[in-house]
Nucleic acid binder design. Structure first.
Lengths: 138, 138
DNA sequence: TAATGTATTGCAACTCTGTTGCAAAATAAA
DNA sequence: TTTATTTTGCAACAGAGTTGCAATACATTA
């Protein structure tokens, strides 16, 4: 498990550090999206806030995790399932945020429909975020 | 114009105050979504930050404006076109955020497709946010 | 229109979130 | 093992958002 995590880091030309390994492992063990604050808590403040910010930014740049928009002044992060690469994310799945428990799921099997935009607009990314009640809360 | 704005406030059981009128007018004159900071600037710091926060919150509660999720730790607000009411928003249109100029558009004519969710999940709201280049920047 | 009760505003103080520069420490390469 | 490079943690800071409260503005009634 740890080794697999190290492999992923190396494959992305990242040096294998304690914080990167732990944070990446956290994402792999979690089946929901995480905010910066979640990671801070789940690592029991083992790492500096700044380190976590920088790690997340690095992971996004390398295509290891992707961001999920929210309406509460926060950003969520979740593992990219497969070969998202440097700058080119293609996580074309829908995200679900539970209003009750706050858990955010990647609905891997529900793909984003093609959204038409007006003539001269150019689409680079499409996010679909559904909210409501998850299976555990409904 | 001002009178129409006052009417909207009254219709929503809100007392007609200077800040509410000016901020609502701002939304009506703007054809793009606004963040708290935008409103602060566009009203030339005429109102206290706190007043703007509270006004936005009130407008959302009353269904006068709706929120738009982003991946940059901010929340955008835009006018609800018609009868969204108390707690029951139904802005079923797509939002477009330009990566270049930052302008966010409500694509009123592009409706949100129906998104299937797994069995026991209950959908209350669906947001579709497209980003890329707008007509002016492409 | 004036008087009264209610709702809203602005201020102060505070907390939380995110950023930057830099020295110390850890990692990778030789 | 040594050296060069990258990453981390700390400190200090800037910005965003919240809360309580007194002063003010608004709505209501007579």
């Amino acid at each position: 498990m740890k080794n697999e995590v190290a492999e992923i880091l190396k494959r992305n030309q990242l040096s294998v550090t304690d914080s990167r390994q732990k944070i990446l492992e956290l994402f792999r063990l979690s089946n929901s999206a995480l905010a910066h604050a979640d990671i801070e808590k789940k690592t029991s403040e083992q790492f500096d806030r700044v380190t976590i910010y920088r790690t997340l930014q690095t992971f996004v740049e390398k295509g290891i995790v992707h961001t999920i928009p929210t309406t509460d002044n926060s950003v969520l992060y979740a593992l990219c399932k497969d070969n998202c690469s440097q700058g080119r994310h293609h996580d074309n799945h829908v995200h679900f945020i539970c209003d009750n428990c706050g858990t955010t799921y990647c609905l891997e099997h529900i793909t984003i429909p093609n959204v038409e935009v007006p003539g001269n607009f150019v689409t680079k990314r499409t996010d679909v975020v559904v909210s409501g009640l998850c299976d555990k809360c409904s």
